[in-house]
């Protein structure tokens, strides 16, 4: 049963990515709707590249809710297996609906990132319909060939649009572009920087009136894979927010459990609960900076605990968003 489940779930993600560009069924419009009223340039050598992970996560959450049910339900599993051949339409319309509220959070986070960059006088363009998924999930699952196909597509898009540098918004996309694309694509020549790196050196100091104290949750792919621990702290501190460190912090951070939420929902949940317990014992406001961490920790949090993405929190404190 487990083997079949694994094969089907992995297969669905691959098929969908190759056919639709995204590992879960969704409309392309959902990817860039967040930028609607921001009037970001469409052309320019420095582009904001979201890699679609923030936008995808609400759909993954719905998918996981379904998988939690089918994990032990053979018939439903087989239906999904057939469903994948009908690709997006079947799954989107009949099964997968992302929560409206959740979609809105992701939109706001991305909007906050763009506004923060703007506030720091960073010039950047946006890719809109060419803001493709990086394929990072395929890479993690060992689907190297499919990942390569997706990566080539992304790279070609960058080149076609004359992009020299991309600003990324989440740790997984940042890592895969910075460290993996150059291994897979010959002469990969796009400069990659996370928005936190960009902001860390450019954000203007601002005293905040409210004495806000938050506990920080470092994502593995920033803290351990890219040694990026000071940048998010700089951005928070520059905005007058007091950062409290949990017991497992910086390069010793503890994973949110998110990466296995589709294949091992129950185990993933236990890991998230353990981490939320640790973080919330320090502060009731937990700051994340990765869409996967945000999803997985939010799923198990109690009412008293608030989990908020770093960009959104900082943008609010700085009066850029409501």
């Amino acid at each position: 049963m487990r083997k079949r489940f694994l094969n089907i779930v992995v297969d669905i993600m691959r098929e969908l990515t190759l056919k639709t560009g995204y590992p879960v069924p969704m409309n392309r419009g959902d990817i860039y709707s967040w930028a609607q009223d921001l009037d970001i340039e469409t052309k320019g050598p420095i582009a904001l590249y979201t890699g679609a992970l923030y936008q995808i996560m609400p759909y993954i959450e719905s998918l996981v809710a379904i998988l939690e049910k089918v994990e032990n339900n053979r018939a439903l599993l087989e239906i999904m297996n057939i469903g994948k051949h009908l690709a997006s339409s079947f799954l989107t319309k009949s099964l997968l609906r992302a929560s409206h509220k959740r979609v809105k959070i992701s939109r706001n986070i991305l909007k906050a990132i763009a506004l923060l960059l703007r506030e720091a006088d960073v010039n950047f363009s946006y890719l809109y319909k060419d803001d493709l998924y990086s394929g990072v999930l395929l890479y993690d699952l060992g689907l190297s060939e499919s990942f390569l196909r997706q990566a080539r597509k992304v790279y070609r898009t960058f080149k076609d649009r004359g992009i020299k540098k991309v600003i990324t918004v989440d740790p997984h996309t940042t890592y895969v572009l910075k460290n993996v694309y150059p291994k897979f694509i010959d002469n990969f020549d796009i400069e990659v920087q996370s928005y936190l790196e960009v902001l860390s050196s450019r954000i203007k100091k601002k005293e905040s009136k409210t004495k806000l104290e938050v506990v920080i949750h470092d994502p593995c792919f920033y803290a351990r894979y890219q040694n990026m621990v000071e940048e998010p702290r700089n951005v928070l501190k520059a905005s007058g927010i007091k950062v409290i460190e949990p017991k497992r912090s910086r390069k010793f951070t503890a994973c949110c459990g998110g990466p296995i939420e589709a294949l091992y929902p129950e185990l993933s949940r236990k890991i998230a609960m353990d981490r939320v317990k640790e973080l919330s014992s320090i502060s009731n406001v937990i700051v994340t900076m990765c869409p996967i961490c945000f999803s997985n920790l939010s799923k198990v949090k109690t009412k008293e605990v608030e989990i908020i993405d770093l960009a959104l929190l900082v943008a609010r404190v700085r009066g850029l968003m409501r």
Binding site: R2, K3, L6, D140, L141, C220, R224, Y225, K251, F252, T253, A254, C255, G257, G258, P259, I260, L263, Y264, L267, I271
Partner: peptide, 16 residues
Amino acid sequence: ALNSLYSCLLCAACTL
């Protein structure tokens, strides 16, 4: 064996 392989988070804590 498959559970072992696919339950890994790739979080890299072990490498420390």
